[in-house]
């Protein structure tokens, strides 16, 4: 388990397993940490808070014009209507993709990310290649994700330097007109809500490929 995925784990994993275990047992023994609280934190981000939250926000905005308007004016309050908010989502902004504007979210200085609607960020979002290039070459970055944008589309990159957290409202895909809100939410990927992908209506039998 600890020895796979060495692309972002250059240090010897067993060493880190031991170091973190030793640190945890020291802090528990000193009465500084409750290990059950650690379990609860991990459970929250492994099972309860993730990109499905954001997908529901997007789907609601697609089917309910009044909700979309509220979302673009006061995202924090509109997202709270669906029951989401809190840690690393206290101050939210939603930016809308249109046929003429494409938005991309980054944090060049660290790893700021809207946890309350997308969960914890993936490795690539926190990586030096993404953080360094998203601002200077967003079109090249998008190409690396397989997204080629026409020249007449304005790319807006949002660098999360303060405590505002950003969510992209992707364009509703063509061919989705008859889908229910729930079916729409199932199409919305984490990558589309960061702005490195578009939402697509999958061909039959390939639905899982679009889920990130």
């Amino acid at each position: 388990m600890d020895s796979n995925n060495d692309h972002d784990h250059q240090a010897v994993p067993s060493d880190l397993t031991l170091r973190v275990k030793a640190l945890e047992s020291l802090l528990v023994e000193k009465g500084l940490v409750d290990p059950a609280a650690l379990d609860a934190v991990i459970d929250t981000y492994e099972h309860k808070v993730g990109p499905r939250n954001g997908a529901q926000v997007v789907a609601r905005a697609w089917v309910d014009a009044a909700y979309k308007k509220r979302l673009l004016i006061d995202a924090t309050a509109a997202i709270a209507e669906l029951g989401y908010g809190g840690y690393q989502g206290e101050h939210m902004l939603v930016v809308e993709n249109t046929p003429k504007v494409h938005n991309l979210i980054v944090c060049t200085l660290c790893s700021c990310y809207p946890w309350s609607v997308l969960g914890l960020p993936p490795v690539w979002y926190k990586s030096a290649p993404y953080r360094s290039r998203a601002v200077i070459d967003p079109r090249g970055v998008l190409r690396e994700f397989g997204l080629e944008l026409p020249e007449d589309v304005e790319v807006r990159v949002w660098d999360s330097t303060a405590e505002l957290r950003y969510l992209v409202l992707p364009e509703r895909p063509a061919g989705s007109e008859k889908l229910s809100e729930e079916a729409l939410a199932a199409l919305v990927t984490r990558d589309a809500m960061v702005g490195v992908a578009k939402v697509m209506v999958p061909k039959r039998g390939a639905a899982h490929e679009w889920r990130a």
Partner: peptide, 24 residues
């Protein structure tokens, strides 16, 4: 800085210690 390290179906934590370090 190299290519972007994209991983399909990435887990929230890649190893148990990552979750413990995060929660600590």
């Amino acid at each position: 800085m190299g290519p972007i390290p994209y991983e399909k179906n990435e887990p929230v934590f890649h190893a148990r210690w990552e979750g413990r370090a995060f929660a600590l």
